[in-house]
Amino acid sequence: MTAVTLETRNLTKTFGALMATTDVSFRLEKGARHALIGPNGAGKTTFINLLTGVLKPSDGSVMLEGKDITALRREGRVQRGLVRTFQINQLFAGLNVVESLALVINEREGQGWRWLKPAFDAPGIDDEIAGLLSDFGLDSVFDQPCSALPYGKQRLLEIALAVACRPKVLLLDEPAAGVPEADRKEVMSRLAALPADVSILLIEHDMDLVFNFANRISVLVAGALFAEGSVEEISKDQRVKQVYLGGAAHA
């Protein structure tokens, strides 16, 4: 039986009379490449915010590796290995690529105060940075300010920063959004090359990317889990086609 890394049980969030998510029970298996799809307003962002601690649920729970993290703050979840990227890049505009990676790695190690020391002299940090630069195709822009990078490189850097946190679960919120077509394949190929033991939950509207990346898909509609299955099962599900794939998939 495959181990479950992340799980929600009857997760519910209300805003007054509005039910943003309703009794969502979801399981992310260890090493999964799992996509979360649904029409606009389906509650996908609310669900991710509940997973990451941005929002507190009205009911239900979130479990990471079998431990209840429902009451844990955002930073505590990151420290335990639950890491996300954002639909709109969240980068350190005043730093360059290497400085950004050094800051995240040292913060991860509880030594954020030393990130700007010459040669980044914390043991092994230079090798780790070099590996991340290579893995995400950032070698040629290592000394450029984050704000000056082409948008595709900014996306790759944001993912590299998330990986520098050593995630057990990586939540990717539309990683290809806004990326020029010529760079989209590189972003997705770098994601496909991530370590197999990192469990990935991908939110994405581009169904070609979803079908090429994911091995399992969950469909959220009106805040509730509407369908779940393999790529083949979801692509053939007539109910999913009617509410999402038939017309709204590329909206």
Rank of each mutant, 00 (worst) to 15 (best):
N212S: 14
K67Q: 15
V24D: 12
A248C: 00
E233D: 14
D127F: 07
A148Y: 09
F136T: 04
Q111I: 08
D173G: 13
K13Y: 12
A130D: 12
L201M: 15
M1N: 11
V210L: 08
V97R: 02
L133Y: 03
G131Y: 05
T21R: 05
Q238W: 02
A93V: 10
L201V: 15
A130L: 06
L64G: 04
R74P: 12
E107M: 09
R184H: 02
K67F: 12
N89K: 02
L171M: 07
E29I: 01
I37N: 02
K44P: 05
D59G: 13
L28H: 08
L72D: 14
N96W: 01
A130G: 07
E204P: 01
V141F: 03
G112Y: 10
Q154N: 07
A193F: 03
C146G: 09
A182P: 00
E181W: 10
L50K: 00
A130F: 06
E7P: 00
L245T: 12
I159T: 08
V243N: 00
L18V: 15
R9C: 06
A93P: 01
V24T: 13
R27F: 01
K13E: 00
K241L: 13
P57D: 05
Q111T: 14
V98S: 03
L201P: 04
V187C: 04
S58V: 11
E158V: 10
F213A: 09
R114L: 14
V169F: 04
V97G: 06
I125P: 02
R73N: 15
